[in-house]
């Protein structure tokens, strides 16, 4: 167990390092450097800048150093001081811009994953036990549709329905009166009332996918010999099912939990943009469209780090569930 965890932990650290390198490369990809853009911005608001100023800025930001040094400086700033650099759009540190919004993104992602598994596991079990029943077919078709509709389209459809049929706008995470209010019970309840729509949207495709996985694995496991053996012992069907095949079928579900988190976080920015949520999504989009590289790059880095960490957590869960993994067996 300890060896396994240590191995996974080291892999996670390695992945984070590789990730930071990739993000850095993306930051460096667009033509021109930060100093040029800074100067351009100053010029556009009417400030007079000379060629010499540009060189000064470049020196000041350390942009005249070779790239490995710049990378090291950048990553050290992040790791040791949590300093992600300056946002060009907002003209303040990226951390200040992201602030509270990151919390919303995390809450949204986590509740989507919880909802996803809360729905997928029972429905998958139901579908496998009642194979080819009307309920099974209904869930199968819903599953197909759930996978086929991209998140953002679902968001648009729900928006459209809420506006045309119910006459209310379900976008955002707060009603207008609570938008800038300090936290209170009323605000929390208002927040929860708004939370469920993006949660459902983000969870849909994952739910559909995991229902399929759960159903297929359980159908497979249900007919395995060890189930027959347990039945031959005289175990009642219900207990039999929950103790053996369901338990075994949970493994692939849990082991892909990290990927589900990845899927949810992956769809989050666009959904947040469509629903105008006050989280990091719209920020990320705006940063990319307006070439605010530090803001965009930082968010990309944060999103990916979250999912890599999620994968690590799901590895731990899997090890807890499966003795073979725990003991380093190949399954």
């Amino acid at each position: 167990m300890r060896a396994f965890l240590l191995r996974r932990f080291l892999i996670m650290i390695g992945m984070l390092a590789l990730l930071s390198l990739i993000v850095f490369i993306i930051l460096e990809l667009p033509p021109g450097d930060f100093a040029e853009r800074h100067v351009y911005q100053l010029k556009s608001i009417g400030i007079f800048v000379t060629e010499e100023d540009l060189l000064n800025y470049r020196h000041q930001f350390g942009l005249d150093r070779p790239w490995p040094e710049r990378y090291l400086r950048w990553i050290t700033n992040i790791v040791t001081r949590g300093n992600f650099g300056l946002s060009l759009i907002y003209r303040k540190p990226v951390t200040d811009v992201i602030g509270e919004r990151l919390g919303f993104t995390a809450i949204l992602a986590i509740s989507a994953v919880i909802l996803l598994y809360g729905l997928a596991i029972p429905i998958g079990i139901y579908s496998a036990i009642h194979q080819y029943s009307i309920g099974d077919y209904t869930f199968t078709i819903l599953g197909y549709v759930g996978i086929a509709i991209p998140n953002f389209m679902l968001a648009l459809v729900l928006l459209y329905i809420s506006v045309t049929v119910f006459g209310t706008n379900v976008g955002g995470l707060f009603s207008p009166e609570y938008l800038d209010a300090p936290w209170s019970w009323a605000r929390l309840i208002d927040f929860l009332k708004h939370l469920w729509i993006p949660t459902i949207i983000l969870g849909t495709s994952g739910t559909a996918f995991q229902i399929r996985t759960m159903r297929a694995t359980l159908l497979d496991e249900k007919n395995k010999l060890y189930v027959t053996v347990a039945r031959a012992k005289g175990l009642p069907e219900g207990r039999l099912l929950m103790k053996y095949p369901v338990r075994v079928a949970l493994n692939p579900i849990v082991s892909t939990m990290g990927w589900e988190l990845t899927r949810v976080i992956s769809g989050a920015p666009i959904v947040a943009f469509v629903l105008a949520l006050p989280d990091t999504g719209p920020l990320f989009l705006r940063a990319l469209l307006d070439e605010d590289i530090y803001l965009g790059g930082s968010l990309l880095m944060i999103y990916s780090a979250l999912t890599i960490f999620g994968t690590f957590l799901s590895d731990i869960m899997l090890a807890l569930l499966d003795p073979r993994i725990r003991q380093g067996e190949k399954v």
């Binding site: 992945m15 990845t262 992956s266 070439e291 990309l300 890599i308």
Partner: peptide, 24 residues
């Protein structure tokens, strides 16, 4: 194997967005 694992645990749409945004 590690490379595949890595690619799979990065949220693809944000990375795609960032890459697409960096096209001139």
């Amino acid at each position: 194997q590690r490379l595949i694992e890595f690619t799979r645990s990065i949220p693809d749409l944000p990375l795609l967005m960032a890459l697409a945004a960096s096209l001139p």
